[in-house]
Design a protein around this nucleic acid. Sequence first.
DNA 1: TTGAAAGCGCTAACAT
DNA 2: ATGTTAGCGCTTTCAA
Lengths: 342, 342
Amino acid sequence: MIPQKKRPLTLRDVSEASGVSEMTVSRVLRNKGDVSETTRQKVRDAAKRLGYVPNKIAGALASQRVNLVAVIIPSLGNMVFPEVLSGISETLEDTGLQPVVGVTDYLPEKEEKVLFEMLSWRPSGVIIAGLEHSEASRAMMRQADIPVVEIMDVDGQPVDCAVGISHRRAGRKMAEAIIVAGYKRIGFMGTKMPLDHRARKRFEGFTRTLAKAGIEIADQEFYSGGSALAKGREMTAAMLARSPDLDFLYYSNDMIGAGGLLYLLEAGVDVPNSVGLAGFNGVELLDGLPRQLATMDACRREIGIKAARIVADRNAGDESGAGQIIELSPTLAFGDTLRSSS
Amino acid sequence: MIPQKKRPLTLRDVSEASGVSEMTVSRVLRNKGDVSETTRQKVRDAAKRLGYVPNKIAGALASQRVNLVAVIIPSLGNMVFPEVLSGISETLEDTGLQPVVGVTDYLPEKEEKVLFEMLSWRPSGVIIAGLEHSEASRAMMRQADIPVVEIMDVDGQPVDCAVGISHRRAGRKMAEAIIVAGYKRIGFMGTKMPLDHRARKRFEGFTRTLAKAGIEIADQEFYSGGSALAKGREMTAAMLARSPDLDFLYYSNDMIGAGGLLYLLEAGVDVPNSVGLAGFNGVELLDGLPRQLATMDACRREIGIKAARIVADRNAGDESGAGQIIELSPTLAFGDTLRSSS
DNA sequence: TTGAAAGCGCTAACAT
DNA sequence: ATGTTAGCGCTTTCAA
């Protein structure tokens, strides 16, 4: 005898097992409407005994509501996004909404695909990283007629609303601190950028501000792939060999900055006097380094919390978040690698 | 005039716009069945023009199939799990299946909730970390009648099948290497364990093997929360202050191991001769450290790939993976912090 | 407080 | 190659 494919249990099974109509069973299982305590118990017992798991697909189709929030981010390896996510999950925790994560690998085509895929489940909202999307993606989000929150960045025009920081301003702020501290010969290291708009905007804000002070980036190098810590180390070694007169190194993220810092300390360089250093993000990792790397925190958790709040509120009928752009202010931490004045 | 809640587009709209029956539209959009090239074009044009996004909820209900795979892991902050995930995504990429991630924070009750929630979407498979689950969770997974792959660990009895390493054996292997290298006074640092069964099993395998060689852990300390790198640094400092005669430190993960390593190097301790060091996991981060920390790689990517393979194959009718336990062998990397013999 | 009927938007199965 | 019919398992709505 061939083992049968089990037919999953339905409301009807619970109804029969408990001698209560399907409709009432449904009411009990959703805590909706008035049901007598006796009936409640009968139903609950039967459901538990049978091991009934409701079918959300049928429920969603019938009720036209789906308690899912699409969260679309470029990567999970980046450390940054898991933190945003944890802010989102925590906030959604007791709203009945559930985040569902999609990853784009920084590729617009993949973003489009993931978005399409997720929207086809008719989620109650979308939280998506960045303001740069293909025209098709933007069209889908507009069409969807659900709250769409673009996060991490506010330098641009969102489809609906946005929560983030201004990366241009962040780059500017860092440049100003460096100028005030009296550094003059500045090197930059970062990821290859066509993909990462936020890193690009920071870089633009940074160079533009330096330019106004008559300073030009003296050397720069971009990497992709590999261990960021190791890359930071290698790039720093190479850059200082090439341009020994540099007195400041700005890294587009803390991981490569940490690699650079470890290298300089080993090489016996006087940080921050011979060479100053700064990264970006404020990752927890930095706490364990021999010296505190100067950095700027990107408000990741808070972004997640605020974005989720907007979706949850709008889902509950409070439309006040619609169309808003919420800009958070990153704080600059000087740590031990950036003088606060010359 | 109050803005109307937009009615999302349906197949019917595309059908009317293209002058083709709903059924044929459905066929075109799913590339199913024979449809003439002309009709195809008409339908595709109409769908694109309207911006139609199919409703997977209705589709899933009608077809009784859902292209989702539930992936349930304890945490995203751990570095370990994003890597498993990337193995899963990559493998599922061209199978038509989509991973959906749920996070449990190492809490059995939350695991149960997440599992229930995900199963209520009737996924095509479950990939879940660990072999320890509440009885209710196990019951749900058995009932579901879909492939269930328990990953990361093989020391126990899976509900269906398992892909992972033996953490007991990993602990043993490390202990053996340490014994061979001639270390005698051994300290251990790790996370508080009731939650993390795999760390616990490694610890058990480790201490048991040492015991057989007549060695007992000379000191130990457990932490929770905070920056792992910083914790490693602090715990190491504290432990060596307390037990200055230790000649080896075994860390339950690479992050705290790295913190310890940085501390010892700064303190001018001769590693690995005065004190040897080892961690666990083989995280990419380690590549950038001043010295290579001894570690044991946990085959994270490969676990993800193999687990996803099983789900995908079974979904395609190949049941050969059912009931299997696939044990992978972690490799020990001595790095610069563990002598290979005394 | 409970039940009966209709239908959510699709697709399987069967025509044609 | 295309169309028709009958549900999928729930919830909404209305009636009792």
